[in-house]
Design a protein around this nucleic acid. Structure first.
Lengths: 339, 339
DNA sequence: ATGAAAGCGCTAACAA
DNA sequence: TTGTTAGCGCTTTCAT
């Protein structure tokens, strides 16, 4: 590795004819330095193009002002929005964030070790830690905020949607429209959010006096293809239904495609509610009725909470639930008795 | 800021009854240490849960093994994919990446200063540096790779699509299908990729013996709304056309929506080609014919190139063009004379 | 094979 | 107001 090239604090000091300590005072400009001296030092800094070395500062300050954010991937729109919110809030407070994608728990563990245990970062943002065993590798010694799942241990902070409320909200809209046989496509049920959204679905059915039928529930994997598969499953088994709640928009879109291929119309024959309000949700055919989550503020709140924990290590770790919103477009309509 | 808590190399040394230097040799395990000593040191490391402090290592090694990646935003699928590719390649080579979003040139300049000039990172990945004045703030002293645009200065590396080829590819498909009046919705023309894709469009027309008509070109802003606006513009001005090349999928989708609202059918009345092959492009109605770019490998190649430059500062900076691929779905068809 | 000494670039504590 | 002296935790000489 090539050595760093630029001028050090001592070079500046030599050129300005002062001690390096005076230069340090100037660059941390909260000290009392004689205006003349300051001017001389600043001239030297400019002449040499001097930049304080961040690493050396971290070394003496004992803080890197860097956060780690580990996500299953960087491309999912929801995850990316969370990271963008987190990054902007972090930066506002003088922190940067190293983002890394961990497809599996083992990679996650390795990343935690390299990024957090090595004291390279001051804290961890973990997106969706309960999709597999990754939650067993969460750091022990450093502030951590879980995103997209409530912390099962008290020591971690958390920011997540009110998933059950959201599931109820989506289902209620269908119930209120007169639908009785309402299907559900969940995400993988190992993920908390899937089962919580399902709990909301069940509670909305019960509130509407509808007895849940387990045959109307299909476990998908968030992909459009799995939405497609769900519809084929129900059609093949001759299952009757007039409405569908898909736990994300991708599965909803896949389902709509499969319905159309089967000659069914949305919303005339089947009403569909999605979840996420992803970009272009309003450009699908028909425009998607869906649950909107304020993902940007999830990231922002998570970063805010993490930095707060870093700077107030003794305080308890808060948990935050973010509300969702129903966006009604044209993929849902009132139930009409089939003749 | 709370002081770092964990054990240092000297604590381990004291416990193992050796000098801290011996511990250093053990943790960098390429040195010659007596097996017995090594075992003792390793026991002490385990007992104390000792982790080498990454910052102190950076300090002495003069390298942080960290890259900076600045993008206009983190949520655009293309940008996110590039970052994911870059991050994975970087990690494979022992580097991490700090990603930051810069909505404007001023933020970009500030980020470059804080991340790169402070020697916190070893190099910079700049996504779309020519969308505004940000290219004037590129670092002078540190390896930099531009993504999504060919470098106008020799000192920067670059990875980008072969935009002109891609524009030709899309247009050629329409020409070959018999279309004569082919409209174009560009991105902002200040961005190189927009004008290069347009150059490809023009060259394909000319190769097909079609005289370009400037009234058939509309400058959009990458949003679905601007695709919509383009169609309205042409419809309002009574412009005749049977085909459209939109320089990204979002604008294509917006245009298709506007065409449908106007009672026109895709592809029967108007054939549409998009660009990007974004997720779910095959789930729109009709499934979108589009240009697929291998965005993941753009990020990977960019990171590879940057690290190569960091580790071989004397070598010239390469420029790389990535080929695209036409994906034919159902938004395009052969031209049919209107009766 | 191991230890002692020096120093990376900076900040903090103490002197002058 | 300014300079001197120590160190931060580690790696890299150079001795032993």
């Amino acid at each position: 590795m090539s050595p760093r090239s630029s001028a050090t604090i001592r070079d500046v000091a030599a050129l300005a004819g002062v001690s390096h300590q005076t230069v340090s005072r100037v660059i941390n400009n909260n000290e009392r330095v004689a205006p003349k001296t300051r001017a001389r030092v600043e001239a030297a800094i400019a002449e040499l193009g001097y930049q304080p070395n961040a690493i050396a500062r971290f070394m003496t300050e004992g803080c890197t002002y860097t956060l780690a954010c580990i996500s299953p991937n960087l491309t999912d729109y929801t995850f990316a929005s969370i990271m963008e919110g987190a990054e902007m809030e972090a930066r506002r407070q003088g922190y940067f964030v190293i983002s890394a994608s961990a497809p599996d728990a083992q990679t996650f563990a390795q990343l935690v070790h390299q990024l957090v245990d090595s004291q390279r970062t001051e804290g961890l943002l973990a997106i969706n830690p309960y999709i597999d065993e990754r939650y067993t590798h969460l750091p022990e010694t450093v502030p951590t905020v879980l995103i997209g799942a409530m912390a099962r241990q008290a020591k971690y902070g958390a920011v997540a949607l009110d998933e059950e409320f959201a599931g109820r909200q989506a289902t209620q809209h269908l119930v209120a429209s007169g639908h009785k046989r309402i299907t559900l496509i969940t995400g993988p049920l190992v993920e908390d959010c899937s089962s919580e959204r399902r709990a909301g679905y069940l509670s909305a059915l019960q509130a509407g006096g509808i007895t849940p039928d387990p045959r109307l529930v299909f476990e998908g994997d968030w992909s459009a293809t799995s939405g497609d598969a769900a519809i084929h499953h129900w059609l093949d088994t001759g299952t009757q239904f007039s409405a569908l709640f898909a736990q994300n928009d991708r599965m909803a879109v896949g389902a709509i495609r499969a319905l159309r291929d089967a000659g069914l119309h949305v919303p005339e024959d089947v009403s569909v509610v999605g979840f996420d309000d992803m970009p272009l949700a309003s450009y699908f055919d028909p425009p998607l009725t869906t649950i909107r989550q304020d993902i940007f503020s999830i990231g922002r709140e998570a970063a805010r909470q993490l930095i707060w924990q870093i700077e107030h290590p003794a305080e308890p770790t808060p948990k935050l639930k973010i509300a969702t919103q129903l966006v009604i477009r044209h993929s849902t309509s009132l139930y009409k008795e089939v003749p």
